[in-house]
């Protein structure tokens, strides 16, 4: 509430009242924290991309012109795209099943989704490093079944990254999709059946179109999160198959090249924010991501 301190007639009637903090002032501590330790550092970093080592766009020319870096961009988009598509293909039937499942069974699945989401990221990645290694369980099982003769290279390459990242992203697509499907009125599908649609037609003409906004929002979120992922690609991808986030870290940590680091960060930032803008524009939700 905004307090007026004077009436029309000019008589002050509220000076004895203790001045309360206004609503804006309540947000000030957080605002100061964010400006000082978020906005300013990020802006400085981005500035360095055009000032170091010499002023100009040299860093961007090098970053976008060299085939080494281009391969890293390709890797990043390829893996993110694959992860998104696979998550969607697996996530949709699971979300659908969850929406029709009896409550008890559904709550078990939810508990496992949450457990997987909340378990330490490094612990989960470590598990995949062990599972996917040459002498790991997966290769052993495949050989034991007679499907392959010698171990497949599943780790230290983009296959490993894709498997590990899909594992991490699945809950992020299942949960929002479940929300969307659960909100669809079953009567709509009964109506479709009464109109003569068979199951397949109902799926393609009714259920899928109704779920598309949720799928698009979830997919975009998973894609954006994957683009900036650092830990899993670094551990499962090996040094030869870098992704964008690793490149940024490498510029800064091993090469101490702040100009290039800033330029790569800007590219990642611009792509991320542009995709979020698309999401806000077309799906109007502020669905949130994780790390």
């Amino acid at each position: 509430m905004v307090s007026h301190t004077e009436t029309d007639s000019g008589r002050a009637y509220a000076p004895t009242r203790v001045r309360r903090l206004t609503d804006f002032e309540l947000t000030l501590p957080a605002l100061v924290l964010l400006v000082l330790f978020f906005v300013v550092p990020v802006v400085i970093l981005l500035m360095r991309s055009v000032t170091e080592p010499v002023p100009g766009l040299g860093n961007y020319v090098e970053l976008l012109g060299s085939s080494t870096y281009l391969r890293i961009f390709t890797n990043t988009f390829l893996v993110s795209g694959l992860v998104t598509v696979v998550s969607l293909l697996i996530g949709f039937p699971v979300a659908w099943a969850l929406a029709v499942m009896p409550g008890r069974a559904a709550s078990i699945v939810f508990a496992i989704l949450l457990l997987s989401m909340w378990t330490n990221l490094l612990a989960r990645t470590y598990a995949w490093m062990v599972l996917l290694q040459r002498t790991g369980v997966i290769n052993k099982v495949l050989i034991g079944l007679g499907l392959i003769d010698k171990p497949l290279p599943l780790v230290n390459n983009l296959t490993g990254v894709t498997i590990g990242m899909t594992y991490i992203m699945l809950p992020f697509i299942i949960l929002p999709l479940y929300g969307v499907i659960k909100k669809i009125d079953p009567a709509i599908l009964q109506a479709a059946a009464l109109c003569g649609a068979n199951r397949w037609q109902s799926l393609v003409r009714v259920l899928l179109p109704l779920a598309v906004p949720g799928m698009a929002a979830g997919a975009l979120m998973v894609f954006v999160m994957s683009l900036g992922y650092f830990v899993t690609p670094a551990l499962l991808g090996g040094t030869a198959n870098m992704m964008l986030a690793e490149l940024i870290a490498q510029f800064v940590q091993s090469l101490v090249n702040w100009g290039m680091g800033g330029a790569a960060a800007l590219v990642l930032l611009v792509v991320t924010l542009a995709l979020y803008a698309v999401q806000l524009r077309f799906f109007g939700t502020d669905r949130m991501g994780g790390r």
Partner: peptide, 19 residues
Amino acid sequence: FLTPMILPVVVLAVALYAF
């Protein structure tokens, strides 16, 4: 206030490191 949640963490990490 919500942007740090959607920004790639690596960008914040590098920026704060320099700062």
